[in-house]
Design a protein around this nucleic acid. Sequence first.
DNA 1: TTGTAAGCGTTATCAG
DNA 2: CTGATAACGCTTACAA
Lengths: 337, 337
Amino acid sequence: MTRVPTSKDVAKAAGVSQPTVSRALAGHPQVSAATRERVRKAALELGYVPQESGRVLRSRRTRRIAVVCGPDDLLSPFRPQLVVPLHQALAAAGYRTTLIAESGDAAVLSQVTDGSVDGVLVTAARAGSAVPGQLAAHGVPHVLVDRLVPEAGHPTCAADNRQGAAEIATLVAGLGHREVALVLGPRRLRTSLDREAGFRSVLAAGRAVRTRVLRGGVDHAAGVAAARSLLGAAHRPTAILCANDTIALGVLHEARLRGVDVPGELTVTGFDDIPMAGWEPYALTTVRHDTGRMAAEAVRLLLSQLGPDVDGAAPESVVLRADLVLRQTHAPPPSPS
Amino acid sequence: MTRVPTSKDVAKAAGVSQPTVSRALAGHPQVSAATRERVRKAALELGYVPQESGRVLRSRRTRRIAVVCGPDDLLSPFRPQLVVPLHQALAAAGYRTTLIAESGDAAVLSQVTDGSVDGVLVTAARAGSAVPGQLAAHGVPHVLVDRLVPEAGHPTCAADNRQGAAEIATLVAGLGHREVALVLGPRRLRTSLDREAGFRSVLAAGRAVRTRVLRGGVDHAAGVAAARSLLGAAHRPTAILCANDTIALGVLHEARLRGVDVPGELTVTGFDDIPMAGWEPYALTTVRHDTGRMAAEAVRLLLSQLGPDVDGAAPESVVLRADLVLRQTHAPPPSPS
DNA sequence: TTGTAAGCGTTATCAG
DNA sequence: CTGATAACGCTTACAA
């Protein structure tokens, strides 16, 4: 196995000095076209690829960004819809992506403070995580993506969960529903809390609306269980607002299993607009975030921190409106017979 | 903003030489306990973290592995089930994960030949990709995960799609079905082809079985379309074998929409055992790969190539059996009435 | 057990 | 426009 060629080898082959190789291949303007060509050819022949370790050590820029998620986030139907555009946006900007599954704050911190990344995109919803604070303390450029934290001071790019939830609640209340149930996730999930706040801000206003709240998991089984409890009760709600689409699909299934007509007898709504929500047999009315835009904005916010001297600027943040997706699972409540 | 501390700073603070800092923190045994403690304390106080750029340049080991997927692979329901365990297995072995979305062979190659990763895990199903060949040509350690290529010589860790498909076909044929339809993906997908071969190896043997083949996409809509065509025909199949679960769910939906009883009138099977396949309302009979084991084996195969001098050894490969998951969507065909 | 010296491959700063 | 020289932060001989 022959040694992997370095810029020195190329220099020798092209008959120039080693730094000239670096300049020529980096597209430095003050290199003559003839030299550049000679160097290029030599590099190609030797199969030379500039070693990034040398570049990083010298330039202190890795052109690499860490994307932090929860351990199993990628297994959820929604998170990949965010991570993939983030990765694409980074690649488009010439940055590589290092994936970090958040398994203990210390482990994350040591991976992002060792100079191996230029910045961090945090896409995790755990409410108590110390990671954002530590990043700030260590001066690591970072952006919180789709994840609001109470403490200000972190650049953030997030969908407006509250506003989206308020819109869907407005829709449901406007249709005339007076018996509404909320199926929410656990209290430690920020997004679930924000959505709850949005739902309540509207439903509390119209006093005529009776609201029940069920709290449980965020998966399909949680929806099934919630629906079982709600639809088995003597006094059924006429609308069930869910904290995410997966729960809503569980509710839908259980409702259909019991022969409850959706949306004739029951309105069901979700949140996130995962791909399945659009599948024909579901046609779930839900709320969409524009994850492509969210990713693009997040990357913009992060890269803007990487300039030479931007220490003074206050952390910029972006909140994106969430949009209603009106499909087939909402309707006025059945007229009391 | 104060400069980030280096081992030199720690050395000064602890009153030792710089290499001693390196040795102490690396847990080198020939450092006295007293010195080690002093160094540790100094490092902690300064908030020193060894810079990986220096380590990599010197040691020529990055402890980083690239995981290559297709551009949108992570958006499919199955791929994350493979990528997440890969990432976990790598992390457990002390390796970081660089995510690379395959968008042009050249782009991938330049990212893995610049010394930024110790090896590559290729998890992409495109049949014509030049990446594996190029990796071999450049001597980059790599393993193909869940992706068989015709040319031998690549270490591979894959589920036995053929065997799994053969098993499910055996099950269906054994139940007595004589009118069977296959709903497959496009010809360029290796996995789809392998599964087709497995289906056919069994169905062709029993001459009594009439087999129809539909080829289309690999998503839910493809399943819906296939079912529409098959169930609308005068002569319906009594069993529909699908190339993956998503397709099968589409078939299931359309069947139920038409009031076709599954499994009473129609048997439907999938492949992959995505999470949804286990959801109550589906309870899809399918084939499971043990992605956790697959990931662990793949990482083992890759890391075994990173030892000091293993050039001689032939590329090792692993094929994992796929297992039937018997749920509720299979039954004998309806007796001809 | 520890210090000294060297070098990994690149980019940046100077002269020329 | 190009060459010589230095430096980035770390690990590994080798010497003490």
